[in-house]
Design a protein around this nucleic acid. Structure first.
Lengths: 202, 202
DNA sequence: TTGCACTTCGGTACCTGTTCGGATTATCGT
DNA sequence: ACGATAATCCGAACAGGTACCGAAGTGCAA
């Protein structure tokens, strides 16, 4: 049940008053706040709000207005689960339309996003383990220290930390003491995106 | 039921207006936005949108347009963010109605769930770091090896791995080489829930 | 029982949506 | 290519709500 402009104003006055004082305003206070000279006007508005289900009222009770909590629409986005990525392994073929729902707080500004499943333990020291899902923001470039999805020679995708060194040399640093960093020239690498979030299910 | 170009334009105007103002636009506002000189045009478009099931309208009611929730509603749940938990620290007071949206794949069967923010590095060896969000399934008991939110002596909540040893003795194992396990009797501990998921934002 | 706070009643101006007849321009099946 | 159907638009008359008022009524509690 949608509200009119006035009704929305009144409702927001009710919520802010109730939130600030711990109890609902009286009819007279509402009338004052909106410049009404008749309480009948207040009564009518409240009746309409009640009819539309935004508040509940108890008959003839002073300050007997209760705001019905509006059910919040969960803000989330379905992102495609494009495949798996591991040290030295290519991104597997697109899985048949699988998706993962991700809180929208994970999406980073513009650009498209997708989800990959991490295979292997090359990033354990960055607290990413085998089987974790990483949310990737699609990009062609990265800043130092960011975690990137990088493709080498066009056929081998990995997740690594990105460090630009001198003369166009790039260091791809695994986060696992047992593994060595990879050094490549910037022409031999293509950044697929950067990791902006991690999800893990037990 | 597909929409025409014009209908889609109108529908997107409706959603953005409604989202921004908290109430639907009036016919006149719609007419202004699209340069119509007759409200009958607006009326007809809205009738078509209603016939195709994209909006609902109440007869003769001011701003009585309701947008029907779109096709693929992302499957997610808003869980309350109850506070922080750290080694040896109590769960902080309930934060004022903060929530975090979580993919519904994270919820475990029955029982209520909530979210806590992890403070400290007691679980780094389990790939949980300072600042991560853990999804907790509310429970009174746990199985060996599960990660639990445990409260000791009624005032100190921690996240640890749970191991039941003999004679009712419980070992709460941190996942950090630098920290020692805690041994308690099962009577001195209350399980708050078990960790079923981890979320991290970079 | 007295007063305060909410309720009901009648009434008005205006705003907003509805309906109808009509016209032009796509769109689509045959 | 053709005719039917739907979409897009207009203007004007109509109908019903919204937003307000003042005054009298009612229920509850001090």
């Amino acid at each position: 049940m949608p509200l009119t402009k006035r009704q929305r104003e009144i409702l927001s006055y009710l919520t802010s008053y109730t939130e600030g004082n711990g109890y609902a305003p009286s009819f007279e206070e509402i009338a004052d706040a909106f410049g009404y000279t008749s309480l009948a006007t207040v009564h009518e508005h409240l009746s309409n709000l009640q009819r539309k289900g935004y508040i509940k009222r108890s008959y003839n009770e002073s300050r007997g207005i209760e705001i019905v909590p509006t059910e919040v629409t969960p803000r989330a986005i379905e992102l495609p689960l494009l495949g798996s990525v591991a040290a030295g392994m290519p991104i597997e073929a697109v899985m048949h339309g699988e998706t993962l729902t991700v809180p929208d707080a994970f999406i980073r500004g513009s650009g498209s996003h997708y989800v990959l499943r991490v295979r292997g333990n090359s990033m354990v020291d960055e607290q990413i383990r085998d089987g974790d899902f990483v949310v990737v923001n699609e990009r062609q470039s990265a800043d130092n220290g960011e975690m990137v999805i990088a493709m080498l020679n066009g056929d081998s995708a990995t997740v690594k930390k990105y460090y630009r060194e001198r003369d166009g040399r790039i260091r791809l640093q695994p986060a696992n003491e047992a593994l060595q960093p990879i050094y490549v020239h910037e022409n031999d690498i293509s950044i697929q995106g950067i990791v902006v979030g991690v999800l893990r299910r037990y």
